[in-house]
Amino acid sequence: MTVLPKDIPGDSLKVTVGTANGKPGDTVTVPVTFADVAKMKNVGTCNFYLGYDASLLEVVSVDAGPIVKNAAVNFSSSASNGTISFLFLDNTITDELITADGVFANIKFKLKSVTAKTTTPVTFKDGGAFGDGTMSKIASVTKTNGSVTIDP
């Protein structure tokens, strides 16, 4: 049996954390987006972790974005102690894959008090994996961190 590389060099799934701005007490939304989904033969499963400074940001909610089908079954998240974990699994293993680019999740943060303008990162942590529509590992994932700026 011969195994051929399935990824064209330079191609990767792009996962990007967005940015937001606000004043202390505001609730802002930071999107997590996927790009080049079709090039990577869709997404059938993924789990990953984001870190944030809990002294500056309070997670209000984490909701599935419009590219997630049947989110009540296929999407899960949790947030505590400065870490947000995400889990997606197409429970049907074929019919509810992520097949389009767009917003995977929206994180709502309540901004805490600061004395001066502060930009705090929302960054990928170690761990996690992504699988394509056949549940094979997506070897190349380009992750881009985001941030939230609090301006009193």
Results as ranks from 00 to 15, higher is better:
100 A>C: 05
101 D>H: 08
14 K>D: 15
70 N>T: 10
101 D>Q: 03
61 S>Y: 13
24 P>E: 13
27 T>Y: 11
131 G>R: 00
23 K>D: 12
113 S>R: 09
99 T>Q: 07
95 D>T: 04
48 F>K: 04
85 S>C: 01
135 M>T: 02
145 N>C: 03
45 T>G: 02
130 F>A: 03
60 V>R: 10
104 F>G: 00
65 G>C: 08
14 K>I: 08
36 D>I: 07
56 L>Q: 10
142 T>N: 07
126 D>A: 15
80 S>N: 14
47 N>K: 03
32 V>F: 08
131 G>S: 03
111 L>T: 05
18 G>Q: 11
23 K>T: 12
103 V>H: 06
41 K>F: 14
107 I>A: 02
9 P>L: 11
92 T>C: 01
124 F>N: 10
102 G>C: 06
24 P>M: 06
127 G>K: 15
152 P>N: 07
113 S>L: 07
83 T>M: 06
98 I>S: 03
23 K>Y: 13
70 N>E: 08
49 Y>H: 03
116 A>Q: 05
55 S>I: 13
89 L>M: 02
35 A>Y: 07
55 S>D: 14
101 D>L: 03
139 A>H: 15
142 T>D: 02
35 A>F: 13
71 A>Y: 14
107 I>F: 05
37 V>L: 05
149 T>F: 15
95 D>F: 01
147 S>G: 06
66 P>G: 14
140 S>T: 10
149 T>P: 15
98 I>D: 02
67 I>E: 11
30 V>S: 09
82 G>F: 15
90 D>T: 02
127 G>Y: 00
69 K>P: 08
65 G>T: 10
130 F>V: 02
74 N>V: 01
45 T>H: 00
132 D>M: 00
31 P>F: 10
45 T>F: 01
29 T>L: 12
116 A>N: 06
27 T>N: 11
68 V>W: 01
83 T>Y: 15
104 F>M: 02
65 G>Q: 09
60 V>C: 13
11 D>G: 13
106 N>Y: 08
34 F>I: 06
147 S>L: 06
32 V>S: 10
136 S>Y: 15
109 F>I: 02
150 I>F: 15
57 L>P: 02
65 G>K: 08
139 A>Y: 15
143 K>L: 02
86 F>C: 03
121 P>Q: 07
92 T>W: 03
134 T>G: 02
82 G>L: 15
81 N>T: 15
152 P>M: 15
105 A>H: 00
44 G>C: 06
134 T>C: 14
86 F>A: 00
35 A>G: 14
72 A>G: 13
59 V>E: 14
88 F>R: 02
149 T>H: 15
7 D>Y: 11
114 V>R: 12
14 K>C: 15
143 K>D: 00
139 A>R: 15
42 N>L: 08
79 A>M: 15
10 G>E: 13
119 T>P: 08
94 T>K: 05
58 E>D: 11
125 K>W: 07
20 A>M: 12
120 T>C: 03
87 L>K: 02
91 N>M: 15
70 N>P: 00
67 I>V: 11
149 T>Q: 14
114 V>I: 08
90 D>G: 04
117 K>P: 04
89 L>I: 03
56 L>S: 12
128 G>M: 00
37 V>D: 11
107 I>N: 04
82 G>I: 15
147 S>N: 05
15 V>N: 08
14 K>M: 10
42 N>F: 15
148 V>L: 07
144 T>H: 05
13 L>N: 08
152 P>A: 15
133 G>T: 02
27 T>R: 09
125 K>H: 03
111 L>Q: 06
123 T>I: 07
36 D>N: 14
56 L>T: 08
101 D>P: 05
108 K>C: 04
140 S>A: 07
139 A>I: 04
113 S>E: 03
62 V>Y: 08
8 I>T: 12
57 L>C: 07
41 K>A: 10
143 K>C: 00
144 T>R: 07
94 T>N: 01
80 S>R: 15
146 G>C: 05
137 K>W: 00
25 G>R: 11
14 K>S: 13
15 V>P: 08
71 A>I: 11
12 S>M: 08
54 A>T: 12
6 K>D: 13
97 L>K: 02
6 K>H: 12
54 A>R: 13
47 N>Q: 01
145 N>S: 07
105 A>Q: 00
135 M>H: 00
132 D>S: 07
148 V>M: 06
120 T>P: 06
104 F>Y: 14
76 S>G: 14
40 M>Q: 06
121 P>N: 08
41 K>M: 14
151 D>H: 15
57 L>F: 08
141 V>M: 10
115 T>M: 05
152 P>V: 14
79 A>S: 15
138 I>R: 01
11 D>F: 13
55 S>F: 15
128 G>S: 02
20 A>Y: 12
108 K>H: 03
143 K>V: 02
43 V>K: 02
139 A>D: 05
97 L>P: 15
7 D>K: 11
131 G>M: 01
76 S>F: 09
9 P>A: 09
71 A>W: 04
81 N>H: 15
65 G>M: 12
91 N>H: 07
42 N>H: 11
76 S>D: 14
147 S>D: 06
15 V>T: 09
52 Y>M: 08
99 T>V: 07
29 T>C: 09
132 D>N: 10
108 K>Q: 06
129 A>P: 00
45 T>E: 00
15 V>I: 06
96 E>F: 02
13 L>R: 08
127 G>L: 02
99 T>L: 05
147 S>V: 06
79 A>C: 15
74 N>F: 00
131 G>V: 02
29 T>V: 11
87 L>N: 01
115 T>D: 07
79 A>Q: 14
5 P>V: 06
16 T>N: 09
66 P>C: 13
149 T>S: 15
34 F>N: 09
136 S>M: 05
48 F>W: 07
103 V>A: 10
79 A>G: 09
72 A>H: 14
45 T>K: 02
135 M>R: 01
123 T>S: 07
150 I>K: 08
63 D>G: 09
66 P>E: 12
45 T>I: 01
47 N>E: 00
145 N>Q: 04
142 T>S: 05
100 A>N: 07
50 L>I: 08
128 G>V: 03
108 K>V: 05
20 A>S: 11
17 V>N: 01
83 T>I: 15
78 S>C: 15
109 F>E: 00
138 I>H: 12
107 I>L: 04
11 D>M: 14
97 L>E: 01
96 E>M: 00
61 S>M: 14
62 V>R: 07
131 G>C: 03
41 K>Q: 09
68 V>G: 07
134 T>D: 01
136 S>G: 06
83 T>C: 07
3 V>I: 11
83 T>Q: 03
14 K>L: 09
49 Y>D: 00
140 S>G: 12
51 G>R: 13
26 D>P: 10
132 D>A: 05
57 L>R: 05
58 E>F: 09
139 A>T: 05
59 V>L: 12
133 G>Q: 05
30 V>D: 09
13 L>K: 10
94 T>V: 15
145 N>G: 10
102 G>Q: 04
123 T>C: 06
150 I>H: 15
